[in-house]
Design a protein around this nucleic acid. Sequence first.
DNA 1: GTCAATTCAATTGCACACAATTTAATTGAC
DNA 2: GTCAATTAAATTGTGTGCAATTGAATTGAC
Lengths: 153, 153
Amino acid sequence: MATRNTPRNTLSEQALLLDNQLCFALYSASLAMTKLYKPLLDELGLTYPQYLALLVLWEQDGVAVSELGERLYLDSGTLTPLLKRMETAGLVTRLRDATDERRVLIRLTADGRALKTRALRIPGCVLEASQCDVAEALALTHQVQTLRNRLTT
Amino acid sequence: MATRNTPRNTLSEQALLLDNQLCFALYSASLAMTKLYKPLLDELGLTYPQYLALLVLWEQDGVAVSELGERLYLDSGTLTPLLKRMETAGLVTRLRDATDERRVLIRLTADGRALKTRALRIPGCVLEASQCDVAEALALTHQVQTLRNRLTT
DNA sequence: GTCAATTCAATTGCACACAATTTAATTGAC
DNA sequence: GTCAATTAAATTGTGTGCAATTGAATTGAC
């Protein structure tokens, strides 16, 4: 029996189906995650990318915009206005590095540091909504990180 | 020996580390994917979300904006201007449904249909850059889809 | 049949993302 | 030491995403 070979059934056609696309799975899951965080972050007066910036700063205060960008895979076109809004909100300061005037160092204010306490409960809420245990979530995290690392090198 | 219990080492502190966050893994992997597609889609004159819309339309032509939104998890605030740009580019038409004037049906033009042929090579390019075989990619796709489905219900 | 509730797309306003360019500061080959 | 090359942040312009609102069309309880 001859295999059908209409355009509808070629391998490359199968690969173009939306639900076979890894890129769309990641895209839609990431947007869904952002929506899940929305009400939790609204309480803190933060957007999702601003929260990511704070995660970095809570680990290491006083980083340059470029270092923040390397950590978050974002460029100055995204970070500069974002950090200005966070400065206006009183969460960070932006000061030129005295030893290298090209660099702008981002530092947490007391308010910015204090937000960490209120953020501590967020990961638990997210894990619950994800309906998976810690080990499962970490395993998936590592797989997705590995993929990202392959794509960014 | 007593375990240390400084703030730096609590479980909730660990959970706030950027590299332990599933949300950031998905976010950064999704952005990396978009950048990988950029040069491939530039050749076709498409943006990444426009490409996603075409994936839907190549599977099923003549869908309403709301149906496209359900499929892509996007709302009319995103899709209306995106589809207008695709209409301007001559890829789709936007016409009110005669049987329900609230609905706007999106149909491919000949140009929009023709783009599919040129898009067929894209999934292979992406898979190569991802450095994983088809089975591996599909397995990860299903895991991420499962997570997304949990988050969107 | 009527009208309140619902549905659908469009609009408005805000916040990303990012390519491309600009400006200022630093580095390094000579 | 000088200046071309590099680096860092900011700026500009385009295209998403999405909350909230608007306006038009449809539905459904009565």
